[in-house]
Simulated assay, not measured.
Amino acid sequence: MPQPTLNEHFTEQAGWCAELGSPFTAELLRAFAMSLETSGIIKTLVGNWAGNPRADALGLRLAGALHHAVLSGASAELKSVYPTGETYPDFETIWPVVETYLAANADTVTDFIQSPPQTNETRRAFMLLIGLNAIAKRFGKPIHLLELGASAGLNQNFDAFYYDAGSWQWGDQASPMTVTTNWKGPAPEFSNFISIRDRKACDQNPLDLSDEATRLRLKSYVWPDQPERLARFDAAADIAVSRGTKVEKADAADWLERELATRPDDAVTVLFHSVFFQYPPLETRQRMTNLIEAAGARSSDDAPLVWLRYEPELLWNRNAPPLALGMTCDLRKWPGDNHQILARSDGHVRNVEAL
Rank of each mutant, 00 (worst) to 15 (best):
C17N: 06
T328D: 01
R263I: 10
R350L: 11
E311Q: 03
A104E: 04
N338W: 07
T119H: 02
G140S: 12
A250T: 06
N105Y: 03
H273P: 00
P312K: 00
L209Y: 05
E86H: 01
R215P: 05
Q278I: 13
R229V: 11
T100A: 15
A250N: 11
P2C: 02
A324G: 15
T108N: 06
T284H: 08
L314Y: 02
E283T: 14
F139C: 09
H348A: 08
D164Y: 11
R138I: 07
V98Q: 08
I341C: 02
L78C: 04
Y88H: 11
E259Q: 14
A125T: 14
T328Q: 00
P23H: 08
D164F: 11
G185P: 03
N338C: 08
F10G: 04
S72L: 09
W307Y: 03
S300D: 07
W183Q: 00
V97G: 08
T284C: 07
R229G: 06
K137W: 03
T180V: 15
N319K: 03
D159Q: 12
G244C: 09
W49C: 07
E293R: 01
I194Y: 04
V241P: 03
A18T: 10
Q340R: 05
L148P: 01
N120E: 06
E86C: 03
S195M: 08
S195K: 13
E27R: 14
K219E: 13
H273C: 03
T214N: 10
S72E: 09
W95K: 05
D111M: 05
F139K: 13
P83Q: 13
K249Y: 02
S195I: 10
Y101L: 05
Y88M: 08
A267E: 15
Q278F: 10
L6T: 02
E248R: 13
N192Q: 13
A76F: 08
L315G: 00
A213M: 11
Q226C: 06
F91M: 09
F190E: 12
P312V: 10
T110M: 04
D238Y: 07
T214A: 12
H339G: 04
P96Q: 05
T110P: 01
W49G: 04
G326W: 01
F272W: 07
G244K: 12
R54C: 06
L29E: 06
H144Q: 10
P4G: 10
A33P: 01
E77S: 05
G153Y: 05
P117E: 04
S195R: 15
W16V: 14
G73K: 00
A235R: 14
A63N: 05
G336T: 12
P335S: 09
D211H: 04
T84W: 04
N157T: 13
I135S: 02
A103M: 09
E37K: 13
A26F: 05
P321S: 02
W95G: 03
A69G: 05
T100V: 06
F190D: 10
A267G: 08
P312H: 03
G149R: 10
L282C: 05
S35D: 15
L325C: 00
E37M: 08
H339W: 15
E212I: 13
Q278S: 12
H67F: 06
